[in-house]
Design a protein around this nucleic acid. Structure first.
Lengths: 348, 348
DNA sequence: TTGTATGCGTTATCAG
DNA sequence: CTGATAACGCATACAA
């Protein structure tokens, strides 16, 4: 009974709450409140705020509704809208390590594209916890996200309880995928080193056996004669430095190294510095990614330029197509070799 | 009429959709579907999945409900739950530049804390677009997020249509805030330089006039005699390098520089290298943040260590308190000076 | 221990 | 051009 009365005098509620205690909870203004205050029906308010007012609601009415709404501080409730429409206008991007400079750029590109399309991006950083990644993907499917961008996370099977998914830099297993031209980039890098006369080329590689790293290993193994000196390490400067220290000591006749990431290359630089190994005279180094950390090294790092932002935008486009009901084709983003001082003395 | 019939034979829908065309849209399984298939009521299913089954639903029933649900691929609809409960179990973190190494770490810390509490973090990167930041904050209040963590974004007034907000590294204007002990850190750094005998100490500062940078300027101005050589620059290595080049040329008698960020310091290093200025002999350099980019410089960068992850965790804790209805106190996170080779030769 | 009924705030389909 | 009214899927007081 008293509830009914409250509903009928609901308009007064606002003033009361505002002057009472905002901390107690948000004074939620609904479309009904706006309708009452504006003297129109709730559906009119809805029409105005869902952008479907054109040609259906008079300009005067719309203006007054908007004015009243602004006055009351009304905002459409996202949960209710999502429930009704079945779309949250949110996508999730799941990445293994937001701490690696590649991923912030990926996120930024994704977010730019998403923002233009009116989508919000929720970023999930799994910190290389595969299970957590998989569970996040699972959880996100329940509805918080209308679509998923998965970087190096095993996607759920295509047939399962299901939602638009695009896979980045890994095997789509049926889902559309977006990848860098890792094979092409690695070939360029190795060819560059070989053109410089290097024959004993090492590979400082990631500890993870995911598609992108497997491809690099395969390309290098195929292009380089004999066995390839190889060390696996974590994508952190200190870890890379420590592992590179051992590696360099154990491979005295290695004259060039391909690193799976600029961060690894930076670790290798530090190790080389400690051992008195000169770059590029004693050791030529190539990285992957083109991060700031490679540009400030002395000499600057030759690297494979990967446009992470473009990859993110591309991934969003593909996801868009998929959310629109299409069946997008896989895409490959070209990469380029940027030659700097770490392979050619006196350069950059 | 036909709608009613569909509702009644709804259970069959699943099989049809599954065998037909998954790409057409997700075969949404609802708690009603599960209830029917399990031969229980919808509320029983709800009880099971909202974790309130203990002592109310028999173990056998619960097990069978779960089995059927798993079989059908049921996931509770987040929007419906959010609508009903009024909480999305999501918070948003708004940052100015995810590309700066500080913020990924901040995010990671926030996410760790949030995850433990069962919250998801949505990251919004404004790319230093203040308006976009403000609008995001506005938009997020509608309900996608139960609470907001705002880094260097002007918070909406406390009294407005309202939601829990914690402000990081800026003026809360009534909202609880979490900040680094920037004043203490800057003091330590300047004192360190002065103890080394430097008197002409410059300041490579940010182009933004936000609280944290204003504080640093004030501390330095107060501690250093005479005018302080100062240059403003963007938080990008190339921008910092370019600006530092001019700055160094124009300030020949400056013997030490405090940089607002390790990224700026890295730019300064590159510029100094190009000009043949030796670090630390000709110029001692202190950074802020303790990023990888400072560790790989030669010599390594003396810096103010700011634990971004801890700041993120702290911010989430404060937000938690607030969401729980409390009125948390502001908090300050201590920072420490890490002395390395860029100020003291032969060190690190 | 389980089932029934109701409403969260929206959107969308209709009459008016 | 506008106003009732019925879902959307879940949670919860209450009845059984």
């Amino acid at each position: 009974m008293s509830l009914d009365r409250r509903a009928k005098t609901g308009r007064r509620k606002l003033a009361v709450v505002a002057s009472c205690c905002p901390a107690m909870g948000s004074p939620r203004v609904t479309s009904v409140d706006v309708a009452k205050a504006a003297g129109v029906s709730q559906s009119t308010v809805s029409l105005v705020f869902s952008g479907k007012a054109a040609g259906r609601i008079s300009a005067a009415t719309e203006a007054s509704v908007r004015a009243v709404a602004a006055d009351l501080g009304y905002r459409p409730n996202a949960a209710a809208r999502a429930l009704k429409t079945g779309a949250a206008r949110t996508i999730a991007l799941v990445v293994p390590d937001i701490t690696n400079p590649f991923f912030p750029r990926l996120l930024r590109g994704t977010q730019q594209a998403a923002r233009e399309a009116g989508y919000t991006v929720a970023l999930i950083d799994t910190a290389h916890d595969h299970e957590w990644g998989a569970r996040s993907a699972e959880a996100l499917q329940s509805g918080p996200a209308d679509g998923l961008l998965l970087f190096e996370v095993d996607p759920p099977p295509v047939d399962a309880g299901w939602e638009p998914i695009v896979v980045i830099e890994s095997d789509g297993r049926g889902h559309p995928s977006v990848v860098l031209d890792v094979v092409g980039g690695t070939r360029q890098a190795v060819a560059h080193l070989q053109a410089l006369g290097h024959t004993r080329i090492g590979h400082l590689t990631a500890v993870w056996d995911t598609l992108t790293f497997i491809q690099r290993r395969e390309v290098i193994d195929a292009m380089v004669d004999g066995d390839v000196p190889r060390a696996k390490t974590d994508f952190r400067v200190d870890a890379a430095r420590a592992d590179a220290l051992d590696w360099l000591r154990g491979e005295p006749d290695m004259t060039a190294a391909f690193c799976d990431d600029d961060v690894l290359a930076a670790g290798l630089f530090v190790a080389a510095r400690e051992l008195g190994i000169r770059i590029p005279e004693d050791l030529a180094v190539v990285g992957f990614g083109d991060f700031d950390i490679g540009r400030v090294l002395d000499p600057a790092l030759t690297t494979i330029v990967a446009d992470a932002a473009a990859l993110g935008r591309m991934a969003f486009e593909v996801l868009s197509e998929q959310m629109a009901g299409g069946t997008p084709a896989d895409r490959v983003l070209p990469v380029g070799l940027e030659i700097r001082g770490s392979t050619v003395a006196g350069r950059g």
